[in-house]
Design a protein around this nucleic acid. Structure first.
Lengths: 213, 213
DNA sequence: GCCAAAAGTATCCATTGGATGCATATAAAT
DNA sequence: ATTTATATGCATCCAATGGATACTTTTGGC
């Protein structure tokens, strides 16, 4: 068995500091853009931001912890102090995105406006939307912040689409219809299957589908 | 820039053989459980079968070429003789799945039956369905076999749902509605978001949504 | 029979997520 | 003001993966 120990792109200068060494971080600030302070200060938030941008650029499947770490200037392992694993980081990114979406749809006053806001958010942030909808349902059940964020979006849908419906069972049915249509429509459109002439036309079409019956 | 893209079962460049090498493969048959024959015989087909099973078991994201190779008893690199890369293998698996689905829906005689067959296939083969719908649209455009397989499924939908519609534009609209509803409904149901009482109820609900207007 | 292509194999590479163990900065307790 | 705990950061290691290169063995057509 080959024990090939591959030391990635390791370029460290030999000298590791001996135990009990004097002043650390003295003069070798040349090697890497070492941060001024040992503590980062706000790693979690900045990592989240960097991750969100990377997801938007390359899709969540391609997000690598190491790339995120490099962007914010820390060792990749440091991220584990704030996120138990890669999926947790993605969950956190998704949570923030849901909150932004909720904020937008909360301003809707009509079914058409909700539809428009939802669709526009999804299409303006396709990779992010793909991430949001990719979170396994099982995961959500054990991630209160994420669950709460999703709930906000749904709450607004209930307010708009089923506010005056008595039967709770019927209310449920309506909301289901809303999301089946929105999710299906956006997915197919984003995938290029629906070569609709425009985003506007898509919105109109989906709003019409939802309005039926 | 080369616009090659399908890479179906195509073979790469010739493998210039260097002369006069010392004979390996002589006496050290002890090391690994070498297959009886050097040639596998039907590697492509068997790899496809193994891959399909693995996808069904663990989802397409987790499929590893090495695992597939091990299942069929070859070196992982051998798969590259039949599939240019991992994605091509997944495309091939998806293609076969689409053909099976097409075969099923082709037997449908009514809209309700089409819906039922489509939904049942998707839910009985969730991971496979996820794979099928995950193929990037751009990929499909350059993969004739996959494209053809998808087309068969759609053709049957046209026959069933829009057979007697004159306007081609209206026909398109109807088919779009069918897939928006089916895809959205199945995705949400499979994700656990729609806690419908049963598959049967889901089918009825989706069929009703499609039938409207 | 010869030989080029087809179909395998071993081996290497870069990159990744994650585990371990240690170092250090800051807040809390003394 | 020390001491101590804990949160946060780092270097290093590891196994796995997709892919590249180079080589060997079959096989089918001549």
């Amino acid at each position: 068995m080959a024990r090939t120990v591959w030391h990635g792109g390791l370029r460290r200068e030999a000298a590791t500091v001996a135990p009990g060494a004097p002043a650390l971080y003295e003069g070798d600030m040349t090697a890497k853009p070492r941060r001024a302070t040992y503590r980062h200060g706000n790693l979690r938030a900045e990592a989240l931001k960097a991750a969100a941008r990377l997801v938007a650029e390359q899709g969540h499947e391609r997000l690598s912890l190491r790339e995120v770490a490099e962007k914010v200037g820390v060792a990749h392992r440091s991220l584990y102090n704030h996120f138990v694993h890669r999926e947790a980081l993605l969950d956190a990114v998704a949570t923030e995105a849901y909150l932004r979406l909720a904020e937008s749809v909360a301003r809707a006053k009509t079914p058409e406006e909700y539809t428009a806001r939802y669709v526009r958010f999804a299409l303006a942030n396709r990779a992010l939307y793909a991430l949001m909808t990719s979170r396994p349902h099982a995961t959500m059940k054990h991630n209160p912040p994420l669950q709460a964020a999703v709930h906000k979006v749904i709450t607004e849908a209930i307010r708009i689409f089923a506010g005056d419906i008595e039967s709770s069972i019927e209310r449920r049915r309506v909301v289901m219809k809303v999301y089946i249509t929105l999710y299906g429509g956006i997915s197919l459109y984003a995938a290029g299957v629906l070569d609709q002439p425009s985003e506007k036309a898509l919105i109109a079409e989906l709003a019409a589908m939802i309005a039926q019956a």
